[in-house]
Simulated assay, not measured.
Amino acid sequence: MADYEQMEFDVTLESDRDLKENMQAAAKFALNQIKEYQNPTNVKNRHEGYGIAAEGYSALQGKMKSTKTDMDDLLKLLPNGDGDVLNVVGSLYNSAVEVAVEAIKLAAQSQRIMDDLYYGESRPTPLEELMEAEEQQQEDSEGFEEAGEAESEED
């Protein structure tokens, strides 16, 4: 019986990984749509990036509020028997989908901010600084001339 439970656990993890990969693919797709249809300018600094992210977060919070309202409505209907449960559950479904859409848009915008700030950053990374220093040192050593050689060339 323990082997069965472990196998079931592994399948669940695999499906979660697949779902996360699909969501990442959806975020990349959304980013491509944003770039194609909205033609956004590059994010210039972290403050502008925060503004873009805050706007997406605010939209996501608005959709979450409507989902909470639908959950509250569903809870109110539970003691009253059947009521209009199908309409409320349908509304909850729609709200959840809208939350997912806003979350994907926020993920896409976050990727755009990250890309623009990383590639637009004027400061080199420590590894790039090290490589530049080594290249400069190599160029300096190649241009080195012995004092005696320089004098003999002038004669």
Score class of each variant (00 low, 15 high):
residue 70 D to Q: 12
residue 70 D to R: 11
residue 70 D to C: 15
residue 71 M to W: 07
residue 72 D to P: 00
residue 73 D to H: 07
residue 73 D to V: 01
residue 73 D to Y: 07
residue 73 D to M: 09
residue 77 L to A: 15
residue 77 L to E: 14
residue 78 L to M: 15
residue 80 N to C: 04
residue 81 G to D: 04
residue 83 G to V: 02
residue 84 D to Q: 10
residue 85 V to P: 00
residue 85 V to C: 09
residue 86 L to A: 12
residue 87 N to Q: 14
residue 87 N to C: 04
residue 88 V to Y: 06
residue 90 G to S: 13
residue 97 V to W: 13
residue 97 V to M: 11
residue 100 A to L: 06
residue 101 V to S: 01
residue 101 V to Y: 04
residue 102 E to Y: 03
residue 102 E to V: 00
residue 103 A to N: 06
residue 103 A to V: 02
residue 103 A to D: 03
residue 103 A to E: 07
residue 104 I to M: 06
residue 105 K to W: 03
residue 108 A to H: 02
residue 108 A to K: 06
residue 112 R to D: 13
residue 113 I to V: 14
residue 113 I to P: 00
residue 114 M to P: 00
residue 115 D to F: 08
residue 117 L to Q: 01
residue 117 L to C: 03
residue 118 Y to N: 10
residue 119 Y to D: 08
residue 121 E to T: 10
residue 123 R to Y: 07
residue 123 R to L: 15
residue 125 T to Y: 10
residue 126 P to H: 04
residue 128 E to D: 04
residue 130 L to Q: 01
residue 131 M to Q: 10
residue 132 E to W: 00
residue 135 E to S: 08
residue 136 Q to K: 12
residue 136 Q to W: 01
residue 137 Q to R: 10
residue 138 Q to I: 06
residue 139 E to G: 05
residue 140 D to V: 11
residue 141 S to P: 00
residue 144 F to L: 10
